[in-house]
Amino acid sequence: MSSPNGSEPIRVLIADDEADVRLLLRIQLEHEGFEIVGEANDGQAALDACVDTKPEVVILDLLMPGVNGFEAIPKLRRQHPNVAIVAYTAVAGDFVRKEMARMRIPLLLKSGNVTSLAATLRKLAETARSI
């Protein structure tokens, strides 16, 4: 199981409006040893799911109907300050890159290979667990 200090597996929530993206990430990340504690199809569902599932990291798509990722970020930070966020998006122009950099949120482009995503999740969880 994936754990930064050989302890419990890292608890991850997947927020993406594409069901196939959620399915694929769940299969790939579970294979990497992560524990997928929940899925959400928009920002509000992600906020609600954080209450019940207590993830350590949220993988957050930025473009979603209803409450989108941009709107969800400040709410997640306010309501769940201990939950780390990874922005996961199909494309990222200058605005998105600058905004994520300003908020110090790791930004990853969607990919069929989860190596970078898994490394980022481990790094965030390791940092959070060391505090």
Binding site: E18, D20, V21, A90, G112
Partner: peptide, 24 residues
Amino acid sequence: NVVGHALRTPVTTIAGMTNALEAA
């Protein structure tokens, strides 16, 4: 830009699912 945006999710999903299929 718009075509690349629309293609990325299905293309990366197919790539990822193909790899995951081999490992399943």
